Every structure is written in C-alpha cells, then in structure tokens.
Simulated assay, not measured.
Amino acid sequence: MCGRFAQYQSRDVYFDALGVAGSDYVHDPEPIGRYNVAPGTNVLLLSERGGELKLDPVYWGYGPEWWDKQPLINARGETASSGRMFKPLWNHGRAVVFADGWYEWQRSGDKKQPYFIYERHHKPLFFAAIGKAPYDDIHGHEGFVIVTSASNKGMVDIHDRRPLVLEASSVREWLSEDTTPERAEQIAWKAALPESDFKWHPVTDKVGSPKNQGAELIEKVG
C-alpha cells in the first residue's frame, strides 16, 4: 500500500523529468517541500483536460456518498479497472502523482520500523492514480487514490504492496483522454518500474506524525 509519500522537489524538476516543453506548463522553481504527505490532505495531481496537462490540488482519498467508511486511499491495480468502486475512475479519471519516494513500515516484534523507498538514482517518480474528474472542480471526499501493485523480488520484505510507478515515457499516454481503458491496463503493467529500480533505508519514527515535515525524515538512521 501507500499511506505516506514525499513530494518535495519543484514542479519544474518533475516536468523536466517528463520531458515536457517549458511552454506546456506554468513554471515554478520553488520546492514543494512536503516530506510527509498524508491522506486527507490536498496533493498536487497531474491530469489532462482538453488535451493539455493540468496540475491541481486534489483531496487524497475517495469516499462517494454511498460509502459509509473512511475514504479509501489506494486501489489495487489488479481489480481497479473492473470493480464497482473504481471502474468509472479508471475510465475517465486517470492521473499521476509526482513523488520522490514513499514510506512503508516493517513490523519487528511489537515495534514498527519505517523505511523510505526511492528510485536508486534519486529520479522523480510518477505514481499512477485515479479519481473523480475534472480535477478543477471540488468533489469533497471524492478525490483520488493511488494505484498499487504487488511487491516482488526483495521489496516484499518491506511490504507486500507498493505504488504502481510509471515510466516517464508512458505518463502522457496514461493520462491521455484518447487512451482506452483497455490500453491503460496494458500501460499499467508494461510501463511500471520494476522493484530492481528502487532502494530503501530505515528512517526516523517521526514520520509517523504528519505534523513533521522536515528533510530529516528521509535521512537514513542507524
């Protein structure tokens, strides 16, 4: 799953990693500076409207009116395209979350050790997401969820689920309003980064509180 992540670099850094021309977005070199993004907060979300890339602050969580529980924050990629809850979002609300890494907790006895997981060369990450479009409208708790996949090849010793991270070259097609839901399924599995592209290390348990937001949260602890 993904219950916390970091989004701390500037918008320009993320767009540059996508290879997007400067005229296609509003430049902002100021670092976002969020080292501990928590559910229930507004998060900058990338989507496409009218053939153009758009970046909007959107509520992280999805709870339609008929849902009588806490808003969901993740959707299993294996079933998101076909289930009652998420199929409409998969078909018409595909989006991407800019990120620099995410946190998972590993249980050891009666304690939990948090880990920060990131691209081994510290490249920006692009989490596949789905939600209630259009994202420039306010939909209350009908925001967005991060799509997850099963962990394999070593990362499973940290957690059995992880965000579905797309290759930068596939982001535009994933977002495109012309991409069919069936093609989006193919992109999700063929263009997802493998576990071998990631590294991780233990971090301070201060990440457990979303009130803590400093860069020290991603530093390795002994």
Score class of each variant (00 low, 15 high):
residue 105 W to T: 01
residue 119 E to P: 02
residue 161 R to C: 09
residue 58 V to M: 08
residue 132 K to Q: 15
residue 15 F to E: 02
residue 193 L to M: 13
residue 87 K to F: 05
residue 41 T to P: 00
residue 90 W to R: 04
residue 47 S to K: 04
residue 59 Y to H: 14
residue 148 T to H: 06
residue 125 L to I: 08
residue 101 G to R: 11
residue 93 G to T: 04
residue 94 R to C: 03
residue 163 P to K: 07
residue 198 F to I: 10
residue 11 R to G: 07
residue 41 T to F: 03
residue 61 G to L: 10
residue 79 T to C: 11
residue 120 R to S: 10
residue 33 G to Y: 11
residue 8 Y to M: 09
residue 195 E to R: 08
residue 96 V to A: 01
residue 90 W to V: 00
residue 85 M to S: 09
residue 203 V to K: 03
residue 157 D to P: 01
residue 54 K to W: 07
residue 163 P to L: 11
residue 107 R to D: 10
residue 142 E to I: 03
residue 56 D to T: 11
residue 35 Y to V: 06
residue 20 V to F: 06
residue 44 L to S: 13
residue 72 L to V: 15
residue 45 L to A: 07
residue 192 A to S: 15
residue 18 L to V: 05
residue 67 W to A: 11
residue 103 Y to C: 00
residue 204 T to K: 09
residue 169 S to Q: 13
residue 106 Q to M: 12
residue 183 R to I: 09
residue 175 L to H: 05
residue 141 H to Y: 11
residue 80 A to E: 03
residue 158 I to Y: 06
residue 3 G to L: 04
residue 204 T to R: 08
residue 154 G to N: 12
residue 216 E to W: 10
residue 126 F to E: 00
residue 83 G to I: 08
residue 83 G to S: 15
residue 95 A to T: 04
residue 215 A to T: 10
residue 177 E to G: 13
residue 131 G to Q: 07
residue 173 E to M: 10
residue 187 I to T: 02
residue 191 A to L: 04
residue 59 Y to G: 01
residue 72 L to E: 06
residue 28 D to A: 08
residue 194 P to R: 08
residue 166 L to Y: 06
residue 145 V to D: 02
residue 133 A to C: 05
residue 94 R to V: 05
residue 147 V to K: 00
residue 189 W to E: 12
residue 187 I to L: 15
residue 31 P to R: 13
residue 49 R to K: 13
residue 148 T to S: 09
residue 30 E to V: 14
residue 43 V to G: 00
residue 78 E to R: 05
residue 193 L to A: 02
residue 184 A to F: 06
residue 222 G to F: 11
residue 74 N to G: 04
residue 180 T to E: 07
residue 99 A to E: 01
residue 144 F to K: 10
residue 16 D to K: 15
residue 60 W to K: 07
residue 9 Q to P: 02
residue 125 L to W: 03
residue 131 G to S: 11
residue 116 F to D: 10
residue 218 I to Q: 05
residue 70 Q to S: 14
residue 104 E to V: 05
residue 56 D to Y: 13
residue 168 A to S: 15
residue 127 F to D: 06
residue 135 Y to Q: 00
residue 203 V to W: 04
residue 107 R to Y: 07
residue 13 V to G: 03
residue 63 G to V: 01
residue 137 D to W: 09
residue 117 I to C: 08
residue 222 G to L: 14
residue 78 E to A: 01
residue 8 Y to P: 00
residue 87 K to E: 12
residue 16 D to N: 14
residue 178 D to T: 15
residue 86 F to Q: 00
residue 106 Q to N: 12
